[in-house]
Lab assay of single mutants.
Amino acid sequence: IGSLMYASIFGNVSAIIQRLYSGTARYHTQMLRVREFIRFHQIPNPLRQRLEEYFQHAWSYTNGIDMNAVLKGFPECLQADICLHLNRSLLQHCKPFRGATKGCLRALAMKFKTTHAPPGDTLVHAGDLLTALYFISRGSIEILRGDVVVAILGKNDIFGEPLNLYARPGKSNGDVRALTYCDLHKIHRDDLLEVLDMYPEFSDHFWSSLEITFNLRDTNMIPGSPGSTELEGGFSRQRKRKLSFRRRTDKDTEQPGEVSALGPGRAGAGPSSRGRPGGPWGESPSSGPSSPESSEDEGPGRSSSPLRLVPFSSPRPPGEPPGGEPLMEDCEKSSDTCNPLSGAFSGVSNIFSFWGDSRGRQYQELPRCPAPTPSLLNIPLSSPGRRPRGDVESRLDALQRQLNRLETRLSADMATVLQLLQRQMTLVPPAYSAVTTPGPGPTSTSPLLPVSPLPTLTLDSLSQVSQFMACEELPPGAPELPQEGPTRRLSLPGQLGALTSQPLHRHGSDPG
């Protein structure tokens, strides 16, 4: 009997000691992992102490058991019943959930998450997105703005933001810190809205009876308010094209079509300037034949640059190039080494500058006005007194259609001029006259002087055409309008007829 009692007592005591040691061994194993994590990542002392304290409290609170892992091991129907039991206190005593059906309560219970916070733990920081609604079931918390405590909340209090009033989550206007050990039930806004969409009859009752104890939403960050730039940057990543407008005076608003859609830094370009900076079609017209890549860069430059609305530039004389043409100036200075066709295309550029300027006046029909002061630039669209967005969009579309028509007509005119030049060069190729044979009589004449090349004649003739079109064909006081194609086609051969009437002889060394 004594040996039996000794064996039973010894066996029970050893089993008890073994169970104690097993729990202690698990605790030390998990604690060792936490300390190894702290050492590996070199976490500083204040945060390291918070980690160790939280682990110790969580171990004593749950005995080292992962409740979520245990809950996920059950089937979904059983999980709903378990969640309904775990959140029964909240669902029974909170006013917004009263009167809900059994199915609605089960769906809500599945969406709730339980959070346990030790003292000093910050649940929400200032500036964080308010993605959830919090219900306090135990403990107390404090809300701070800077170093000032603005509120202390306790059991059955609710904090967050009214989700039904805002389409997008706002930002917190303060820090939420736990004063004691707290148990909180939180539900994400997407989950709550999903359940309320499934039960629309409960939705009206819920929003009407929901009383948020403390609204954390920062009202200064609401979209459309003066301080909402940061919020707009976070939620409006896919922005449309940006529009900046110059201020319109009362006198300017009476004149229709007073602005032109141009790229940034293009205030001095012609009315047909689009795409790359520098001139019509993204580059100076005089350098068009020598740089074919300008047409390839036109599309990307047009689509990537934001639109700006600026006044037209001052008018340019008909014979003056659009500006920024070092290529043609070098050719004029060193005409001995340049291609003979460069002079002809220089005359073509003069005609283009004249036609572009006159067509700009035809479509816009307003006098040039000086540029406004820099303080009046970049007025935002949302400022008071601005035109409605639809009106601005319609004006932009009208300007775009005008620019497209202008570009089409300029292309047709350019093709006409090039065809005339090619026809003239085919009839009378460039050549130098040879020395004529002296006559049989004693009164022999001296050799004839060489005839100037055709490109120079073409430049003079085209300059005469531009001056003739600019000065004589337009009646005084009438708006400057571009001439039609047949009129220009008839004027060019008439001007060139006198020049080509002389018999030109080919030089023996000319390969053409």
Rank of each mutant, 00 (worst) to 15 (best):
D128Y: 01
D128I: 01
D128N: 03
D128F: 01
L130R: 02
T131D: 13
Y134D: 02
F135A: 02
F135V: 06
I136S: 01
I136Q: 01
S137C: 04
R138P: 03
S140Q: 12
E142C: 07
E142H: 04
G146V: 03
G146I: 01
D147V: 03
D147R: 07
V148W: 08
V148I: 07
V149M: 09
V150S: 03
A151M: 04
I152P: 01
L153R: 01
L153M: 04
G154F: 04
G154T: 09
K155Q: 14
I158W: 11
I158V: 10
F159A: 03
E161R: 02
E161W: 02
P162C: 07
P162W: 03
L163I: 12
L163R: 03
N164F: 08
N164Y: 09
N164T: 09
N164A: 07
N164M: 08
L165K: 14
L165E: 14
Y166F: 15
Y166Q: 07
A167Q: 08
P169R: 03
G170K: 01
G170C: 02
K171F: 10
S172W: 01
S172I: 01
S172V: 01
N173A: 11
N173F: 08
G174S: 12
D175C: 09
V176P: 02
V176Y: 03
T180S: 10
D183S: 10
D183R: 10
L184W: 01
L184P: 02
H185M: 05
H185E: 06
R189T: 07
R189Y: 11
D190Y: 04
D191I: 03
E194M: 10
E194D: 06
V195M: 03
V195L: 04
L196C: 08
D197W: 08
D197V: 07
M198F: 10
Y199T: 01
Y199E: 03
E201A: 06
E201F: 02
E201L: 03
F202S: 10
F202C: 11
S203H: 12
H205E: 08
F206D: 01
W207F: 04
S209L: 07
L210K: 01
L210M: 11
E211R: 06
I212H: 01
I212S: 02
T213L: 02
T213C: 05
N215W: 01
N215L: 02
L216K: 01
L216N: 01
R217D: 03
M221Y: 08
M221I: 06
P223I: 10
G224C: 08
S225F: 10
S225G: 09
P226Q: 14
E232C: 13
G233C: 12
G233W: 10
G233H: 10
G234A: 12
S236V: 12
Q238L: 09
Q238A: 13
R239W: 13
R239N: 08
K240P: 13
R241N: 07
K242L: 11
L243K: 06
F245E: 14
F245V: 10
R247N: 10
R248C: 12
T249H: 09
T249A: 10
D252E: 08
T253P: 10
E254V: 09
E254I: 12
Q255K: 08
Q255C: 13
Q255P: 10
Q255V: 07
P256V: 10
G257I: 13
E258Q: 09
V259E: 13
V259R: 09
V259S: 13
G263N: 09
P264N: 15
G265Q: 12
G265Y: 13
G265H: 11
R266G: 12
R266W: 10
A267F: 09
A267N: 09
A267S: 10
G268P: 12
A269K: 07
A269M: 09
P271I: 12
S273V: 11
S273H: 13
S273Y: 09
S273D: 13
R274H: 01
S284R: 06
P285C: 06
S286L: 11
S291C: 15
S294Q: 15
E296Y: 03
E296P: 09
D297S: 11
G299T: 14
G299R: 13
S304F: 06
S304P: 08
S304H: 04
S305M: 12
R308D: 06
P311D: 12
P311T: 03
F312I: 12
S314A: 11
S314V: 08
P315E: 09
P317G: 08
P317L: 15
P317C: 04
P317E: 13
P318K: 04
P318N: 10
E320T: 14
E320L: 04
P321I: 06
P321W: 06
E325T: 15
L327T: 12
L327G: 13
M328A: 10
E329Q: 11
K333P: 08
S335Y: 10
S335E: 13
S335Q: 09
S335M: 12
C338S: 09
N339I: 12
N339P: 06
S342P: 07
S342E: 13
F345S: 06
G347I: 11
V348Y: 09
S349A: 10
N350S: 06
I351D: 10
I351E: 04
F352K: 04
F352M: 07
S353L: 03
S353W: 03
G356R: 11
D357W: 13
S358H: 03
S358G: 08
S358T: 11
S358P: 06
R359E: 08
R359H: 06
R359W: 04
G360A: 13
R361P: 08
Q364G: 10
Q364S: 12
Q364Y: 07
Q364P: 09
E365W: 03
R368N: 11
C369D: 12
P370N: 09
A371S: 07
T373L: 10
L377Q: 05
L377C: 07
L377M: 10
N378D: 01
N378W: 13
I379Y: 03
P380W: 01
P380R: 06
L381R: 13
S382A: 05
S383P: 01
S383Y: 04
S383F: 08
R387C: 13
R387L: 13
P388Q: 04
V392G: 11
E393D: 11
S394I: 13
S394H: 12
R395P: 12
R395M: 13
L396S: 05
L396E: 13
L396D: 04
D397G: 08
D397I: 14
A398S: 08
A398W: 04
R401Y: 12
L403F: 10
N404C: 11
L406C: 05
L406I: 11
E407L: 07
T408I: 08
T408V: 12
R409F: 05
L410K: 04
D413H: 08
D413R: 09
A415V: 11
T416F: 04
Q419Y: 04
Q419E: 08
L420E: 05
L420A: 10
L421T: 06
L421R: 03
Q422A: 09
R423P: 08
Q424H: 07
Q424I: 11
Q424F: 08
M425H: 14
M425C: 13
M425N: 11
T426V: 11
T426F: 11
L427A: 11
V428L: 07
P429V: 06
P430D: 12
P430Y: 15
Y432R: 15
S433Y: 04
V435C: 10
T436Y: 12
T436N: 10
T437S: 10
T437L: 08
T437K: 13
P438V: 13
P438G: 10
P438W: 11
G439F: 15
G439W: 13
P440F: 15
T443D: 12
S444E: 11
S444M: 10
S444T: 12
S446Q: 12
P447K: 15
L449Q: 11
P450I: 05
P453Y: 12
P453G: 10
L454C: 08
L454K: 06
T456E: 10
T456I: 07
L457I: 10
L457D: 11
T458N: 10
D460H: 06
S461K: 13
L462K: 13
S463W: 10
S463M: 11
V465N: 15
S466E: 12
Q467E: 04
C471R: 14
E472K: 04
E472F: 06
L474S: 08
G477H: 13
G477C: 07
Q483D: 15
P486M: 15
L492I: 11
L496E: 10
G497R: 09
G497E: 09
S501I: 12
S501A: 08
Q502K: 12
Q502D: 14
Q502P: 13
P503K: 12
P503Q: 12
R506Y: 08
H507Y: 08
H507T: 12
D510P: 12
